[in-house]
């Protein structure tokens, strides 16, 4: 497949919602180890609200879809994940305004702008044991690809590996940072939800 358009975007969001729902308990368990144990439940509640929203008011284009996803996550997730993922999708909406199709590089650029919003808001640096640690290499992998299907598959694989690789890191942002050394040895839950998001993206673009 060469282009990412509204139908792939809808498939992505729906696959992501299913995957987050199926993995909610796992995400919450990861969060319970180094945070407060609600990441899975919060994300599942948010993605369920998103599914309901786009089913009841089908968006006309990419920008409308991403804006709707962002606004819904913002008002339903709470915690830090709400503004971070909500802001991410709102930025995707702004960046895809007026566009009907994105190639691998175009999609990587749009996602990169979303990552920029997350970094502005959360102020996380690479290596702080956050979702940023999965987002950066995944988007880089997609940007380096010429083919959308291969690029998103590579991005998904990279995000999964990057999420796993957060385990030895010392948390420096969010509630996990209060644990200090005791955060070492546990994977970051946010990096794991990012990995699920990219796996869903690859599935939608296959």
């Amino acid at each position: 497949m060469s282009a990412f358009s509204l139908s792939q975007a809808l498939a992505w969001i729906k696959a992501a919602a299913q995957s987050i729902d199926a993995n909610a308990a796992h995400l919450s368990e990861l969060d319970a180890a180094i945070g407060d144990g609600d990441h899975g439940a919060n994300m599942a509640r948010g993605m369920a609200a998103v599914t309901k929203k786009i089913d009841s008011a089908p968006p006309a284009d990419l920008a409308a879809l991403f804006k709707s996803v962002g606004m819904t996550l913002l008002s339903s997730v709470g915690g830090a994940s709400g503004p971070l993922y909500g802001g991410f999708f709102l930025e995707l909406g702004k960046q895809s305004a007026g566009k009907t199709e994105l190639d691998a590089a175009g999609l990587a650029a749009v996602l990169g702008a979303g990552l920029g919003d997350i970094r502005r808001r959360g102020k996380a640096e690479p290596g702080d044991k956050t979702m940023v640690d999965a987002l950066i290499p995944a988007i880089d992998a997609l940007a380096a690809a010429s083919d959308l299907a291969q690029g998103t598959a590579k991005a998904a694989e990279t995000a999964r590996a990057a999420a796993t690789a957060t385990a030895p890191m010392l948390a420096r942002k969010g509630r996990a940072s209060y644990l200090g050394e005791r955060s070492i040895g546990h994977q970051d839950p946010g990096a794991n939800s990012v990995a699920l998001l990219f796996a869903a993206l690859a599935q939608a673009c296959a």
């Binding site: 609600d38 439940a41 997730v77 709470g78 915690g79």
Partner: peptide, 11 residues
Amino acid sequence: PGHVFTSPTPD
């Protein structure tokens, strides 16, 4: 009030 132990939302 947010959900249990979860920040409320901007709205």
